[in-house]
């Protein structure tokens, strides 16, 4: 199953990112496992400079901004 991680310390941006990502999986009718990572140590294992970050199947697809639903749908399709 698709593994989607949201990296962020819990502020409005990461909440928004999670909502957008969930919308994307809903639109594509795909089952995905969502994980929210707020621990700083775990976040640093991914090479990111800024939160919120989106990780699909262990690959960092976006960091530091909120992508559109369409963008996320595109990444999900490529990851399948």
């Amino acid at each position: 199953m698709l593994n989607i991680k949201i990296l962020g310390s819990g502020c409005a941006n990461c909440k928004k990112l999670e909502a957008v990502a969930r919308q994307a999986t809903q639109n594509l009718n795909i089952q995905a496992e969502f994980e929210k990572i707020t621990d700083m140590g775990k976040m640093m294992t991914y090479d990111i400079l800024a939160t919120p970050a989106l990780v699909i199947n262990e690959k960092v697809v976006s960091s530091g901004k909120i992508p559109t639903v369409a963008d996320i749908q595109g990444w999900i399709s490529t990851a399948q």
Partner: peptide, 15 residues
């Protein structure tokens, strides 16, 4: 400007 940017960046620069 906000701590959610400051702390990850700080961690990145440090490590």
């Amino acid at each position: 400007v906000c701590s959610c940017t400051i702390v990850p960046l700080f961690a990145g620069v440090y490590r």
